[in-house]
Design a protein around this nucleic acid. Sequence first.
DNA 1: GTGAAAGCGCTAACAC
DNA 2: GTGTTAGCGCTTTCAC
Lengths: 338, 338
Amino acid sequence: MKRVTIKDIAEACNVSKATVSYVVNGKLNKVSPEMVKKITAMMEKMEYVPSLSAKSLAGKGSKLIGVVIPQVDVTQKMIFDNPFYSEFLSGLEYYLRQAGYSIVLSVINRDNCFEDMMKKWNLDGAVVFGIDNEEMVKALGNQKMPILLIDSYTTNRRFYRMNLRDEEASFVATTLLVEEGQKNIALVTGKVDKSILLQRRLSGYKSALEQHHIPFDPKLVFEGDVTYEYGVQAANEIMGMSDITGIIATADILALGILNQMQASGKNIPNEYSIVGFDDTYQAKMMYPKLTTIGQNISRRGELAGELILKIIHGEQTEKEYFMDFEVLLRETTRKRD
Amino acid sequence: MKRVTIKDIAEACNVSKATVSYVVNGKLNKVSPEMVKKITAMMEKMEYVPSLSAKSLAGKGSKLIGVVIPQVDVTQKMIFDNPFYSEFLSGLEYYLRQAGYSIVLSVINRDNCFEDMMKKWNLDGAVVFGIDNEEMVKALGNQKMPILLIDSYTTNRRFYRMNLRDEEASFVATTLLVEEGQKNIALVTGKVDKSILLQRRLSGYKSALEQHHIPFDPKLVFEGDVTYEYGVQAANEIMGMSDITGIIATADILALGILNQMQASGKNIPNEYSIVGFDDTYQAKMMYPKLTTIGQNISRRGELAGELILKIIHGEQTEKEYFMDFEVLLRETTRKRD
DNA sequence: GTGAAAGCGCTAACAC
DNA sequence: GTGTTAGCGCTTTCAC
């Protein structure tokens, strides 16, 4: 069967397309109440569904929000290996759906630039992950579409940002272990030089140590991929160094690798090693023992991002940077506290 | 700056819109080679990006594929708690992106019906998860858009399906434990009566037992939510029954809960209990010990789904049902075999 | 309060 | 080979 259009409704009601359009768009002050009722009923009856393509063409926004995940490595397609994305997306989709928007998922790399994506679909806006440094910012081009950056440290005023206070969070995590009495605290992290975010976390770690008069030892910083496997590897290295007893991992997935490997080696957590993760992905609750970690409800954060991007689109958001609160989630990989 | 359209290119090249349209769409036999070159260069120079809204309106397909995940529980928004979706989506997005398609994510529930979604965006097709029974099939409505169902057992000939041989897979999993010498094998699963898929797995389990002359005992079937928490609970129940030594979990996440809880209770896996999971999500490799499970590369399966839906769209797919192969991934939660 | 008509960017049948 | 044109479904200005 053919598509039911605004024209069909108009004819069925003996009115013009314009009138129908008015009621579709809720401009009810322009149409008489009886007419509104009649048209509404007819739309219901004929199962009218507006065409977003047409609406978008007519310049009224596409009701489409792009969610952009940069693909660092071209060969790697598993963008969702990191449960952070999934959980965040979950909340974001939930919020946007309620508001009548949908999500277009796009992974960008060298071949398909972001600007093309946006123009192609007439996106109303976009939520973009992982644009950490200025070089990546360039890849976003310079159209003026509303863009919300998640965890980005660009100083480019053109973008809105939703960030964690990473330095502070890392400071708190480290302090937690220091106050447990740990003197030799390892930091297991991704490659710091490529990521301003990780630099912040490193510097929070350093200042926590400094404040407690513990000298910073670069040998206690383990840099590698943010993967389970690297967690395993770091655990082995750490166990090979006799003095370390506390570990900060800048992602839960690293903590999981560390935890499993240490237990496989017969270590007791948290008696022999205290471990603190980052993010609080659902994995943190599915470990044994449950992971002490820094973060907040990621899905909730996704919802907030939805709220933010819509505000930006509607011109209601003035602050360029939005800071998320974080919590210390004391669970079972650190010692009990009073 | 204004959007660069086909018309701008046409004017810049002193040709008509039609000519430009031909080269955009690769109908090169209709245009002279020099012209093609000239137009192509101009498109490049002016950074022309076609508008999908217009293309879609003109009836040429939207290059948009819907990915639909039904939301069982209205209050629950965490659609991605199940890593299966994430991994699958990852592969699907990867494949479709290469082919110039994008993904629109939509969760459907009572409030937003599927038909509306499809019409609204002029989707070219859809990949739909979790339509297990005929009742859910109804929710898909009866337009004729290409739809690929993942893990669905509907017999409705209108849809294409991509399935696992669930009964066989479950048979193999059970046989694995039987051949280890296990006599009392528990099945930990979701609610069977609501899911044909789970009924198949149950029946594979039963027939494997039967074939080895082991009587089926309904008390060894543990039904609950497909969650980590239920895995924990089931583990407790199982440990409370003295004779069980083998466990089949119909999802890796259940296996994880079981595994962690048993180890927390001081049990040795696989010496005291053998555990087999289902799916082979990345979680399976991130457990300690690594999970023996039934499945195949989920991300690869997503890619295949992308290939399939495009074939369906282009009318190149004749088979209504596509079966995925599965593998037995012998890892460390079952005993070593020769 | 309602309608006519132009225009959004693109395609394709048809004419030249 | 290339141009003309109608039309896809909708919005919106401007008449009435």
